[in-house]
Amino acid sequence: MTQDFSLTQEDLMAKYLFIESRDPYDSADSPNLLELVKGVRERNQDVMLFLIQNGVLATRDGARHSERYRDLARAGVSVLADSFSLRERAIDRVVDGVKPAEIERLVGLLLEPGTKAIWH
């Protein structure tokens, strides 16, 4: 079956805001989401990954799977972690590439024109 989904200029200007509330320890679907994030970025899209709730658990420096977020950041994805969720879980050192962000930042991103916000 053909899967040639064509692009327009407007499509190329879209911003993708993935909001990840799940963690790789509890959710078998977590790697699938990160794979999708990576795939969207590989098509030269502007991609942000905002980690929240238990989604921040694997950002702790030294945690298993934390390298996934570092690799996404190196691939050009803006990886943000909700400051409150980090503080709530006593995560004070996050892996390279992950930046703490306030909830106000998330609201600003949600309201940016052309943003597609995808909660997971």
Partner: peptide, 16 residues
């Protein structure tokens, strides 16, 4: 799964 990023581009909103 590899085709999903291109599929998303065809829509203005994506609700999961």
């Amino acid at each position: 799964r590899k085709a999903v990023p291109a599929l998303l581009e065809r829509f203005d909103q994506v609700w999961h």
